[in-house]
Design a protein around this nucleic acid. Structure first.
Length: 281
DNA sequence: CGTTACCTGAAA
DNA sequence: TTTCAGGTAACG
């Protein structure tokens, strides 16, 4: 469900609502064991109850809740996880499986239809996020960095962008949108992306993510923000899930195929196959 | 490297 | 009934 813009929107929503708040109680549904990577529910409850939230950060698609004992609650929403701030008396969310009671009469409610999301309390968030690639909105994500990432690889450029160890935070929506904006076909072998195209792609990644944040995320199905409201970015996508419809730029029919194991959308005219270096006569 | 599994519900 | 889903880890 959530990619960088969706997780960042939730982070910005929740940060002022949880920072400084103490944790009065933690309730986890009995069938929510798989929520926790390694920790028994009782250990989670003991680690959180009585603690105070001191910060809320994000790395890639992870939310990092800093605790006043120096540890951190690290949450990943995977496909359908939701984290919503609600008055304590508010009715349960659909598929609600956990809640954190704050000391101001509100809850952080957790729901997760597909049960893929994870929580972990760790001494150092690097235990979880240490292997991620750079943030695409940081200065370290330069054209030269991206070019080096792609160089020499035969995997589709889309697969490289989706690999969180190489760049952190891009997912299926924003990769398709960035490749459209950069006029690169998603199945192009990464090593065949030209220097100029790689430079366009670097800018395109940043632009689509920034637009996604400005529009508070894309709600194609399950994503909601920290208040439980959908975003608007799905109204502005150029190619994602638009297969069979006309390209806004040229009118050609948007195509769909599986690339890198994921449903992939592109404009066959705006994103032509790269011109192979002419064979020597 | 690509494929499969994890789980549930909506859409085709 | 079958396919598909915004993610990732574990396979071969």
């Amino acid at each position: 469900m959530p990619e960088l813009p969706e997780v960042e929107t939730i982070r910005r929503d929740l940060e002022p609502l949880v920072t400084g708040r103490a944790i009065a109680a933690v309730e986890v549904a009995p069938d929510a064991i798989d929520l926790l990577a390694d920790m028994p529910i009782e250990a989670l409850r003991a680690a959180l109850t009585g603690r105070r939230f001191v910060s809320l950060g994000r790395r890639g698609k992870y939310l990092l809740f800093g605790l006043d004992d120096g540890r951190a609650l690290v949450v990943h929403l995977r496909m359908t996880g939701r984290l919503v701030h609600r008055a304590a008396a508010a009715p349960a969310l659909a598929h609600e499986r956990a809640r954190i009671a704050l000391d101001d009469g509100h809850h952080l409610r957790w729901s997760d239809m597909r049960k893929f999301g994870t929580w972990a309390v760790v001494d150092d968030p690097a235990e979880v996020v240490g292997k991620l690639g750079p943030e695409p909105l940081d200065a370290a994500f330069t054209p030269a960095f991206l070019r080096a990432l792609l160089a020499g690889r035969t995997a589709p450029v889309k697969a490289v962008l989706l690999d969180q160890r190489r760049v952190a935070g891009l997912g299926n929506i924003y990769v398709d949108e960035a490749l459209f904006a950069a006029r690169i076909r998603p199945d192009t072998p990464a090593g065949e992306v030209s220097r100029a195209a790689a430079a366009r792609l670097r800018d395109a990644c940043r632009e689509v993510l920034e637009h996604g944040i400005e529009n508070r995320g894309a709600s194609f199905s399950d994503y909601v923000d920290g208040q439980g409201d959908p975003g608007r970015q799905h109204e502005y996508v150029q190619v994602f899930r638009r297969h069979g419809k006309p390209c806004y730029a040229c009118g050609a029919e948007i195509a769909r195929a599986v690339v890198g194991g994921r449903g992939t959308h592109w404009c066959p005219r705006c994103q032509p196959k790269p011109r192979r270096r002419a064979a020597r006569a």
